[in-house]
C-alpha cells in the first residue's frame, strides 16, 4: 500500500445548549453584576452589624444618661442590692452574649445564601462568552 489512509477528521457542530457560566466568573472579573453580588453581601453584613450595635448602644449606652437624669433610680433595691449593680454588674453580660449569638447566626445565614447564589448556575442559561481581558 503506497497511499496512507487520510487522517481522521473530527466533525463537530456548535453546542446544542449554551454552556452555563457560574456567577463566580462575574465576581472574578469585576463585572458590574459581580460587584453587585459582593456589594449586596457587604451591605447585608454591615446592616446586620449596625442593627446589633444599635441594640447594644440603646441597651447599655443609655444607662449613664438615664442615671444622670434620674439619680434617684440608684437608690432602688432588688434583693437588697441597688438596681445599677444588677444592670451593670450582672445583666450586661448575658445581654452582650445573646447579641453576639444572634449576630453569628445571621451572619452565617448571609454567607451561605451568598455561597448558594454565586455557586448556582444561572437559571436563564446565558450563552457562553469569553471572559473580558484583564485591563
Amino acid at each position: 500500500m503506497s497511499e496512507s489512509p487520510p487522517g481522521r477528521v473530527r466533525i463537530t457542530g456548535p453546542p446544542r445548549r449554551p454552556t452555563q457560566v457560574s456567577r463566580r466568573t462575574d465576581i472574578d472579573h469585576d463585572t458590574p453584576l459581580g460587584e453587585m453580588y459582593v456589594g449586596s453581601l457587604l451591605r447585608a453584613q454591615l446592616g446586620l452589624a449596625a442593627r446589633v450595635l444599635l441594640v447594644m448602644l440603646v441597651g447599655l449606652g443609655s444607662l449613664p444618661l438615664v442615671f444622670h437624669l434620674f439619680p434617684g433610680l440608684a437608690g432602688i433595691r432588688m434583693l437588697g442590692i441597688p438596681v445599677p449593680w444588677w444592670l451593670l454588674g450582672v445583666a450586661a453580660y448575658p445581654f452582650l452574649y445573646l447579641l453576639g449569638r444572634h449576630y453569628v447566626r445571621r451572619a452565617e445565614q448571609h454567607e451561605s445564601s451568598f455561597a448558594e447564589l454565586v455557586s448556582s448556575r444561572d437559571p436563564g442559561g446565558r450563552p457562553a462568552h469569553d471572559p473580558p481581558e484583564e485591563p
Binding site: 452589624a49 447594644m56 453580660y93 452582650l96 449576630y103
Partner: peptide, 12 residues
C-alpha cells in the same frame, strides 16, 4: 463592661 462589649464590636 467595655472590655467585654469591645469583643462584641470586634465580632460584628
Amino acid at each position: 463592661i467595655g472590655w467585654t462589649a469591645g469583643y462584641l464590636v470586634l465580632l460584628v
